[in-house]
């Protein structure tokens, strides 16, 4: 089935088959398992943190895109959904310069 990114015209329901939800579930579980083992590897702490955070974002993206079906929503809704995220970066980056500059 094709997965149109947004409905052909506003007001039309996107017509896509259900994504393979079980497969995504398997992915999420597997990624969690990998995370659990990476956390205790004898790697440098920074590397571990980066890998773990990367995987967490990956999982979060899977949930957002498929379970919350953002992939199939109109583009403006997708923009709206991620709009607050930069604010997190602004706040945290600005404040940690107090400690790592």
């Amino acid at each position: 089935m094709s997965h149109p990114d947004h409905p052909a015209s506003p007001g039309t329901r996107p017509t896509h088959a259900h994504p393979n939800y079980i497969l995504i579930w398997v992915f999420l579980a597997a990624l969690t398992a990998v995370e659990l083992s990476v956390a205790f590897l004898p790697w440098p702490k920074t590397v571990i943190i980066l890998v773990l955070v990367g995987m967490a974002f990956w999982k979060a993206a899977l949930v957002g895109l498929y379970y919350m079906h953002l992939r199939f929503e109109p583009k403006r809704l997708r923009i709206l959904a991620i709009a607050p995220l930069p604010l997190f970066a602004v706040l945290v980056l600005a404040v940690i310069t107090e400690y790592i500059w």
Binding site: V53, A56, M68
Partner: peptide, 21 residues
């Protein structure tokens, strides 16, 4: 459902940063 998945999504982040790091 949207709310539920969001809460799950937050946990995915929390589990990693609170427990594993």
């Amino acid at each position: 459902g949207l709310y539920w998945h969001f809460v799950d999504l937050v946990w995915i982040i929390l589990f990693t940063i609170v427990y594993l790091i």
